[in-house]
């Protein structure tokens, strides 16, 4: 039986020969990651869907720039990230950053707290503040928070995706969380 990596390599090879069917295999494998990462960056479902699909489309057209030694996802992530930040910059110029605005990512509460109305209310308010604070982080801090907290990536996976060392990931996470805490503390009444 072929491992996922072998399947991916074979699919990429076929894509380079013009097979779109093979690219479908890659898309099916990473579409959820791509969508949720984009959702974390841009903050609304329709844009996340469009941007992640556009990133796959661009990736297919640029596949010849992916060297044989490199894995698909870290390379694709750079395309997706550029796509999202470019969208945010355009949007910011037009209006305001979407994470700061009324339209926040659709989120669900952890089921274990769903029975407690007071807790839900508190967590809803906290959730809003958290998203607002994440929206105020700069790019390099926001990406580690999204990958760690909303994608549940391990440090090794984050390091592979962002092309950093594990030490850099830990350091980035420290400063990202520190900044996040400061932003949350600055908000009305503090959060934590």
């Amino acid at each position: 039986m072929n491992s996922p990596c072998t399947t991916e390599l074979a699919a990429i090879k076929q894509c380079r020969n013009g097979s779109r069917k093979a690219f479908e295999v890659i898309v099916n494998r990473y579409m959820k990651d791509a969508y949720f990462i984009a959702l974390g960056y841009v903050g609304n479902r329709q844009d996340a869907l469009d941007l992640s699909q556009e990133a796959f489309f661009k990736a297919y057209r640029k596949l010849d720039t992916l060297s044989a030694d490199n894995k698909f996802f870290p390379w694709f992530y750079q395309i997706l990230k550029n796509q999202c930040f470019s969208h945010l910059r355009k949007f910011k110029n037009k209006k305001t950053q979407s994470l700061d605005g009324a339209e926040e990512p659709i989120v669900i509460e952890d089921e274990k707290h769903s029975f407690d109305p007071e807790m839900i209310a508190e967590r809803n308010e906290a959730k809003d503040r958290l998203w607002q604070a994440i929206g105020q982080l700069d790019e390099k801090h926001r990406e580690v928070i999204i990958l760690r907290h909303f994608q549940n990536f391990s440090y090794d996976q984050i390091a592979q995706t962002l092309l950093y060392s594990k030490g850099t990931v830990m350091s980035r996470l420290y400063y990202a969380r520190k900044k996040l805490r400061e932003l949350l503390d600055d908000k009305k009444g503090g959060l934590l």
């Binding site: 659709i106 958290l130 969380r177 805490r181 949350l184």
Partner: peptide
Amino acid sequence: FKDLKQLADEVALT
């Protein structure tokens, strides 16, 4: 940081 992590972990994307 534990409080912050707890808060972030309790919020999941739909």
